[in-house]
Design a binder for these strands. Structure first.
Length: 576
DNA sequence: CATGATGACGCT
DNA sequence: AGCGTCAT
């Protein structure tokens, strides 16, 4: 069944966050955001005023539209940019514990998602500044309550169309130019093409798209009014085309791609502007098949693609034809998060320093875990360290129990252990160029800690006085899982390690405050399952020993094979 | 002068 | 579990 997908991209997002912080100084100004002022160690800066830097600052990571108009481009060094635009204001990202602190942007991004959730049943957070929405239902509802001609009129008034002259011109811009905001981008002005478009006869699905465009426009308006962020959007029958459409007109504009416009839009679209083909795979396709556009790829036969070694031919062709239809995922929050830092030209040489950084990372991650946990009653169960040297890049993962713990220590200890698992016996000359730590594999926690404790304990300290929280109502967790989780927590925090299963149920949790009688009354199969869960979780949590010297691989400079699939984000999983 | 920090996911 | 790719 056809869907209506909106793809929203916040305009010059890091810049917009900074403008929100200091509107009187920054609004309407040519502005750029850079990562650090210098690569040398310097004190943390979080105050907005301290972050406006007059010198230094390496590659720009965000450029306001005012600065783009002056020729400032992303990836310029700050000094280069100042030459192009002497009035340029450069703001460095906040730093904390000696590293960039992106929480300002992340937190604002979460607020954006919250607002967008009011407008769509299915919301997929794609990155800090991108969100895909399935607005099919909302569009249908709108058409049920509003005459379709009125809906169409509203949509036309606030949207571009992909087959207009200016849209098709924008579709021919190179990938690089499009990314940095090509010339001629400006706020919306009405044009004759769009009016002509409005005179055409709409199919019933066209009306649905038009309704979706009204919904998306309302969503964008809400984001702008409540948070001050402007954004651009594309509206189409699938996520990939919606994203392509989104890129046609920025900032603060939206573009509708009717099904009948897809072919002409893709005809001259540079191949590497198709999501997933912006890297190696796209380059190989271009050079091996001597094509440069999506339209060119669409004209290649499946068998030629297969013969050239592109096993993912079907998806490639679907992408080139604009029919690749990956559903909008129902995921408004992160599946993992982490903290990392590059030590450019000053690699970490010894374990002590690495440990300190890992502790910092762990603290930062734990702060995020606490936030996330309060909102979503979940906690991660994996900790992964990531280490890059000149010669290698490796990751090491182990299980960790966080639960409702209020200390970052479990993560800190895991991180230090994982570091040693990699380093082996070596303690110096580690030469770590990039060090990172992350957590993943979230599991649901008891929605309300106290209320679950009530179930299993007679400890009056744990009896909750409040009714269940709203979080519990919104996200009821399965009782079985909940109990297993609790048992696991009890087991791993107990002072003794039990190596054998006790003969009596009541002897099972030496220092537990779980009521043995309650446990004893559980049906035998539940007991067995709980015990099984407990031992399994314990086993998983046991760190294994590694041999780092065996793991030092050469980093492969050149990869590899035409078997790589188009970016998973837009590609449906291949059937079996 | 010049440097990124995350995050998702397929393949094996 | 670990690696590689693609993305912003």
């Amino acid at each position: 069944m056809s869907r209506v997908v909106g793809f929203i991209d916040l305009d010059a997002y890091y810049c917009a966050c900074e403008v929100k912080q200091k509107p009187s100084l920054l609004a309407g100004k040519p502005l750029a955001v850079c990562m650090y002022e210098t690569w040398k160690k310097s004190p943390d800066r979080s105050a907005d005023m301290d972050r406006i830097v007059k010198s230094g600052g390496a590659g720009l990571i965000a450029v306001s539209y005012e600065a783009r108009a002056m020729g400032v481009k992303r990836q310029m060094s700050a000094n280069e940019a100042r030459k192009a635009c002497p009035e340029l204001i450069t703001v460095m990202v906040p730093t904390k514990n000696g590293k960039a602190d992106l929480s300002l942007y992340k937190e604002n991004g979460e607020k954006v998602v919250e607002i967008l959730q009011e407008f769509a049943g299915i919301v997929e957070k794609r990155s800090v500044d991108e969100v895909a929405l399935d607005v099919t239902d909302a569009a249908q509802k709108l058409l049920e309550t509003t005459p379709k001609e009125l809906v169409a009129r509203q949509a036309v008034n606030v949207s571009h169309f992909a087959d207009s002259e200016i849209s098709l011109k924008a579709s021919k811009i190179s990938h690089e130019a499009a990314r940095r905001g090509h010339e001629g981008q400006h706020e919306y002005t009405k044009n004759d093409d769009d009016e002509k478009n409005h005179l055409l006869k709409y199919s019933s699905f066209d009306y649905l798209l038009l309704a979706g465009a009204v919904v998306i426009n309302n969503a964008r308006k809400a984001v702008r009014e409540r948070l001050g962020f402007s954004c651009s959007a594309g509206i189409a029958a699938n996520k990939m085309i919606a994203k392509v459409g989104c890129g046609l007109h920025k900032p603060n504009q939206q573009t509708i791609v009717f099904p009948r416009s897809v072919a002409v839009l893709l005809k001259d679209l540079p191949l590497n502007r198709l999501p997933g083909l912006g890297g190696d795979l796209g380059n190989r396709i271009s050079s091996q098949l001597n094509i440069t556009t999506a339209g060119g790829l669409a004209n290649i036969s499946r068998s030629i693609l297969l013969n050239a070694g592109f096993q993912d031919a079907d998806n490639l062709l679907a992408a080139a034809n604009g029919t690749l239809d990956e559903p909008v995922k129902n995921r408004a929050n992160y599946k993992s998060f982490g903290s990392s830092k590059t030590f450019y030209k000053h690699p970490i040489t010894n374990l002590t320093i690495a440990d300190q950084w890992l502790s910092n990372f762990a603290q930062e991650i734990f702060d995020r875990i606490k936030n996330d946990r309060n909102q979503r009653n979940r906690a991660p169960t994996n900790v992964t360290i990531s280490i890059t040297t000149d010669k290698s890049h490796v990751t090491r993962t182990e299980k960790v129990h966080i639960g409702w713990s209020d200390s970052p220590q479990p993560i800190v200890r895991s991180a230090h252990r994982l570091l040693r698992r990699w380093a082996g016996t070596r303690t110096a000359h580690l030469d770590i160029v990039v060090l990172g730590l992350g957590v993943s594999n979230f599991i649901d926690l008891p929605a309300n800690k106290a209320s679950v404790m009530d179930l299993l304990t007679r400890n009056p300290l744990h009896q909750s006085k409040k009714p269940s929280s709203s979080a519990e109502i919104m996200q009821p967790s399965k009782k079985k899982r909940t109990i297993a989780e609790l048992l696991y927590q009890q087991a791993t925090t107990s002072t003794k390690k039990t190596t054998t299963v006790g003969k009596k149920d009541s002897s099972f949790f030496p220092s537990s405050n779980i009521d043995p009688e309650v446990f004893a009354q559980l049906p035998p199969e539940i007991k067995a399952e709980l015990l099984d869960d407990r031992t399994r979780l314990l086993r998983q949590s046991a760190p294994s020993l590694g041999n780092s010297h065996l793991e030092q691989r050469q980093v492969k400079k050149k990869k590899k094979t035409a078997t790589t699939t188009i970016d998973s984000f837009f590609a449906p999983r291949r059937p079996r």
